[in-house]
Amino acid sequence: MEVGQKVKICRLREKVSPEILKKAQEGQPAVIKSFKMTDGSGIGVFVEFADSTTGWFFEDEVQVVK
């Protein structure tokens, strides 16, 4: 995965806002804006949806959209 790639949320490990949950359930694409080191167990990604809503997810929660 790279900054600028389009992704969709394919699963959720933790509770998210109702707004993000709806976008994930609808399969709305988002763009990777940056990465975040998690607590030693992996990498997280910050994403932005078309309406400028942002959130971060674990790497295994997102899937690149082709």
Results as ranks from 00 to 15, higher is better:
K8L: 09
Q28L: 15
K6A: 03
V7H: 04
D39Q: 11
E2R: 08
Q5G: 01
G4T: 02
I9H: 11
G44Q: 04
K66P: 15
K8M: 12
G40M: 06
F46G: 00
G42D: 05
E14K: 15
Q25N: 13
K66Q: 12
K36A: 10
D51Y: 10
A24I: 10
I9Q: 10
A30Q: 04
Q25Y: 12
E26T: 10
V16T: 10
Q25F: 11
P29T: 07
S34N: 10
P29V: 06
F49Y: 14
I9T: 13
M37N: 09
K66T: 05
E26N: 14
E61S: 05
V45C: 05
E48N: 01
F46R: 08
R13C: 11
Q5D: 14
G44T: 02
V31A: 03
L12Y: 12
D51S: 09
A24Y: 11
V64D: 00
V45E: 01
S34H: 07
E48K: 07
V47L: 07
M1F: 01
A24D: 10
V65G: 02
V7L: 05
V65L: 11
S34R: 12
V16R: 15
K23S: 09
F46S: 04
E14Q: 13
G44S: 09
V31P: 01
K33I: 02
K22A: 15
K22Q: 15
E19M: 15
V3S: 01
I9A: 13
A24M: 12
C10P: 02
S34P: 00
V7M: 05
A30S: 08
S17E: 12
I43T: 13
R11K: 15
E59G: 05
K6W: 05
P18S: 13
V62C: 04
Q5E: 13
E14A: 14
V16I: 14
G40S: 03
A30N: 04
Q28G: 04
G42C: 07
K23V: 03
G44M: 05
G44I: 02
E19G: 12
L12D: 11
K8Y: 14
F35L: 07
T38V: 09
V64I: 05
E61T: 02
P18D: 13
K6G: 00
V16H: 14
E61L: 07
F35C: 01
K36P: 00
K15G: 10
G40Y: 06
K22W: 13
D39E: 12
S41Y: 13
